[in-house]
Design a protein around this nucleic acid. Sequence first.
DNA 1: CATTTTTTGTCAATGTTTTGTAAAGGTTTG
DNA 2: CAAACCTTTACAAAACATTGACAAAAAATG
Lengths: 328, 328
Amino acid sequence: MTVTNDDSAQYLIRTVSKRSGVKSDLVRAWERRYQAVTPTRTSGGHRVYTDQDIARLKLLNQATSNGHSISQIAQFSLDDLKHLLKSETPSTVQATNNPLPTTRDKIHLAEDYSDKCYAAVLAFDAQKLESHFENAIVELGAESFIEHLLSPLLTKIGERWKTGELRPVHEHMTSSVIRSLTYILRNNNPCPENAPRMIVSTPIGQLHELGALLAAIMAELCGWQVTYLGANLPAEEIAAAVKYTNSCALTLSISFATDDHIVAKELRRLKKLIGNHVSLIVGGRAAGHFQPVLNEVGVMNIQSYTHFKQLLNQLAAEYRALDDNNRQ
Amino acid sequence: MTVTNDDSAQYLIRTVSKRSGVKSDLVRAWERRYQAVTPTRTSGGHRVYTDQDIARLKLLNQATSNGHSISQIAQFSLDDLKHLLKSETPSTVQATNNPLPTTRDKIHLAEDYSDKCYAAVLAFDAQKLESHFENAIVELGAESFIEHLLSPLLTKIGERWKTGELRPVHEHMTSSVIRSLTYILRNNNPCPENAPRMIVSTPIGQLHELGALLAAIMAELCGWQVTYLGANLPAEEIAAAVKYTNSCALTLSISFATDDHIVAKELRRLKKLIGNHVSLIVGGRAAGHFQPVLNEVGVMNIQSYTHFKQLLNQLAAEYRALDDNNRQ
DNA sequence: CATTTTTTGTCAATGTTTTGTAAAGGTTTG
DNA sequence: CAAACCTTTACAAAACATTGACAAAAAATG
């Protein structure tokens, strides 16, 4: 049984765009130039699409971001497209050259969205927040969404939380919305079989999960196979997860400098439990407070968004090289 | 529930509007433009609708907020519309014969999936778990998925956790996967504008969120507009969320009888903070341990899956009636 | 390697369709 | 008689369509 409905389901182009992740203009362009889809029309001339069309555009979107030329694959059947995507390595996210002219516009757009999203958070309007996020993902693309919208937004929320403009519930609500969005983001970027694995969580006592959530999403986008565990877990549990999944990296977010003892103790225990072959990465607002322990334990400390991305790619490369050697 | 296909039950447009959530003007517009409904008339010319018409408008309302174009689906049959929305809302129609999968088959299938899912949990394989869930949702439909798969699975996890077969991480991982599935489930079942609102969370000290998650999903499926806050929140925060969202119900899950004092205290504080006009619902494995407090505070205690569903529908009906009165 | 050429995503301008809402003025109902 | 309905007409915002053009990226060519 396939996911798609029969032909009775009819959508207008904006819905198709939202669901497939392809901008409306581009949907039309693909139809005009390559007949990638052939929607029926209303009496007034508006395009009307089926569920199949949406599935098709979703796959085409994935395939093109994997490097395929749209002109070559536009007329493939659904099965052909699925087959194409199965036997493929994922999109490698380049961390390098960013300051392109198009990026500037995106940054502007992202700021715009960021304001709207923050307003929704402040108003405690989960529905609106989710809606803004959805639109932003389509317009910005997953990568830019994270870098220029999500990342600064979470920083802002963290700050406002300290000043008292926001309450803890605001953060919980936001986490909840973002968590359910994970599904769309992951959908755009299926990860391969042999991807390096990572656990993301928060040590015990650390209740704020926004940072961890961001890290998890970023890692997934960089081609990692991430298992996200949520916040506030004791070292033994996290270590167990690392073993179960055979992960080669563990990322923790520490955003609040509550009790130095606990965090330090947990970090030391964790390192002992997971051993040296697993990379321990720590980030978050308050990570700096624990610098001595971080150094002692041998933690990779995240400095910035870009830094984390570099780290992710670097580690993934190392892991792949290691993996190749083992196989030979 | 049951639908009286009785022709004797006839309604005027204001009633139809209230029950379906479609404004009177719009009901007329849909009739004039697309013949979405074709009510009979009184001798004087007033429109007279049947229960079927109401059901129809309800579905059309849902479908449009789901992205379907009203002009395209206005003339669909009731069955077509139901099929379009795939997951059937319990509060609406279920009376017609289900020609496709028997309930018995579904239960069997669900058990099958349940086993697979539990195996994935045990093996700590988040990807496989998510994949099973996805397939199950498609095959079973959202409702059956929750009743016959998710609900028993979570119970099982709770039990196995107590015996030590599963660790806390297993539960965290499962929560994480289910949380990201929320997106699909919600998408299948968009809630109307005037839906009653509910907050779902877990009182401070209660770290297990699976029960709360299930409650949230069920409530959404019953037509509530749910804001899910995650676990472990102090009374003030939860109460703030209730106020922000103007919720008329609050559901808490208590699955672990840690410290009687804290939970009891939190419940009392919560009741004070939210007042009497907000329904306080409590469920979960360990809810029974707090029976005295629950009685004292005036809590509705969830007894079972079915009971919760009844409660949800009943409260929603009460709220709608109240809302109607306020508007008049 | 340097130049075209092609591909591809994006945008702008301009006109149309869709769709929810509202006002005006008459009719029915209780 | 007041409240609720009815019909018609109109309106405006959002969403679409079409055409044509542009520029970056990729590919082909010299």
